[in-house]
Write a protein that binds this DNA or RNA. Sequence first.
DNA 1: TTGAAAGCGCTAACAA
DNA 2: TTGTTAGCGCTTTCAA
Lengths: 346, 346
Amino acid sequence: MVKRPVIKDVARKAGVSVPTVSRVLRDAQYVSDEKRARVLEAIDDLGFRPSAAARALVSREPKLIAVIAGNTSRYGYAETIRGIEESARAAGYIVSITVVEASDDQTVDRAIKLVLDQPLAGVIVLKFDPPGVAALRRLPPSIPMVAVSGVRENGVPQVLMDEADAAAEAVLYLLGLGHNTVHHVRVPPSRKEDGRTAGWRRALRQRGATVPSVIDATWDPASGRDIGHQLASDSSVTAVFCGNDEIAIGVMRGLADRGKTVPRDISVVGFDDHPLAQMWIPALTTVNQNFHKLGEQAYELLDAVMSGEQVHRHITQRPTLVIRDSTAPPRPGSKPTSPKPTTPAT
Amino acid sequence: MVKRPVIKDVARKAGVSVPTVSRVLRDAQYVSDEKRARVLEAIDDLGFRPSAAARALVSREPKLIAVIAGNTSRYGYAETIRGIEESARAAGYIVSITVVEASDDQTVDRAIKLVLDQPLAGVIVLKFDPPGVAALRRLPPSIPMVAVSGVRENGVPQVLMDEADAAAEAVLYLLGLGHNTVHHVRVPPSRKEDGRTAGWRRALRQRGATVPSVIDATWDPASGRDIGHQLASDSSVTAVFCGNDEIAIGVMRGLADRGKTVPRDISVVGFDDHPLAQMWIPALTTVNQNFHKLGEQAYELLDAVMSGEQVHRHITQRPTLVIRDSTAPPRPGSKPTSPKPTTPAT
DNA sequence: TTGAAAGCGCTAACAA
DNA sequence: TTGTTAGCGCTTTCAA
């Protein structure tokens, strides 16, 4: 490996002093055209690129924003990250992504150490899940930081998606259609109870409806399908509220596998408004969340924190219910709900 | 803003020299337990964190890998990035993501400048689209770099998904089912002709089938739906090969809107094997691409380049056709397309 | 308009 | 085991 040229090499080759090269680099004034030309030529010949590390050291602000998340490729995460990256790039920052795969101390600390070893301007933690929550706990408070989340929490400045309210709205809508209760399939929650589940429960209680036990799915749509299979054989199920659209689609598929028709036999509601939700047949009723905007807001908040403002602000976004074709009143013939008189179907 | 503490402050507070603090920081040997304890305490009191910039400068080993891409949140991109991040993190690197939104010089250069201003260990360019291709062109050759792509190209070490072959296989499969020709809806191509389109064309020619004109979609599934509407009214269409699964799903939806049944009336094939492809009704026949592995391989290749090996290697991955329920022989009643008076199979 | 000199915050080499 | 002395590659005074 050839040693890469440094500013001194350029200076020597161009026959000028090091500061002069530096001036050309930052296209400052006060350099004669002739010297500038010589320097530029030398830079070109040598293929010189200034050392970012040295520049960062010399009192220039770091231009790196780190995003820490439990996941990067699922719809909501990916879109939030896109929003962050877009805003950050416009402001001259680049963004790094670090995944925290689990919430045990070792995994979390290892990931965090990696991040902190970089020259950081700030950190955005996506705490939609347990690893995110754990990461937030272990980050040193000295560094500018904001959280993005579905549940309000004190401590850090935060951009909040008010999932609970929106979930409650969706459930109330279903109840209003005439369903006696609404079953709930949740995705891995950020803590004991996340916003979607909390909103679901609240709405049910508020109306005095039975609260069926929660059914757990993974992030994989296929797990929704399996759950759909089970639900199809439980005659007390007339409406299902799912933790996200991908799971909802899996559930609909599972229901169809067992001969159930959505929404005639069973209504299904998702969460997120995934781009494919409206392509599905029937188009999925869901809760639209503007993740992209969430990301933009997270950047804005971080920007405020980085400028040294004492921000205790919480930006809250309210997702909106989008009614499409996967929901309808229960079938006249369908059984009223009593806790569990399950007649095995088929 | 309070000045953040530096190593000198810690040394003073602990009553030791600067290098001793440095030793504790890098948990080296040769520090007495007593001094170590004092240093640790001072670090804690002051909330000291070593400057990553200074470390990078002196130890000369940047730990940042930059990914440059035209997009981050679409399925293939997001999964590839996930693969890269996972491998990189395991090796102690963190990865940054920079989106190049368009392929004009100004946009590309602005994004690239941002990236190069960081202390970089290497760069991975996702050149699935024109911005990616443009970015690759404008990156200085001095920096360790690999490309990830769907079309072979010389110059940079590259991880290749052999899309053309796989696309041809899918089209030949459709032809073998008895379709006279296969229409093609493509996603924004990486260049004049990308691998999927090239493979489609090749297969059609190889069998002497008519080559219909290409239909262009955007990345948005809704554009597929619009196209589905058009296709439904063209009686020569019996099979459609789509540039990706999201578009294929949109197309199926559009077809259904117009009363067409898949696969009875029209067969549809996608590309990627998106997690939702198999949830669809009918489950989508598609081409499985292991994007996550692609990302892992990209990191491995970059690692080799960073170690100074003169790599000219191209890693090639062959996607595989996954036959599901969205494809079938053409309907007996469907019109034959001129050049080939084929006997419709049943 | 230019160059000499002085660091940025840290690690590495060397003595003690 | 510890401290002193030199830088890393660049930008920033400050004089000339």
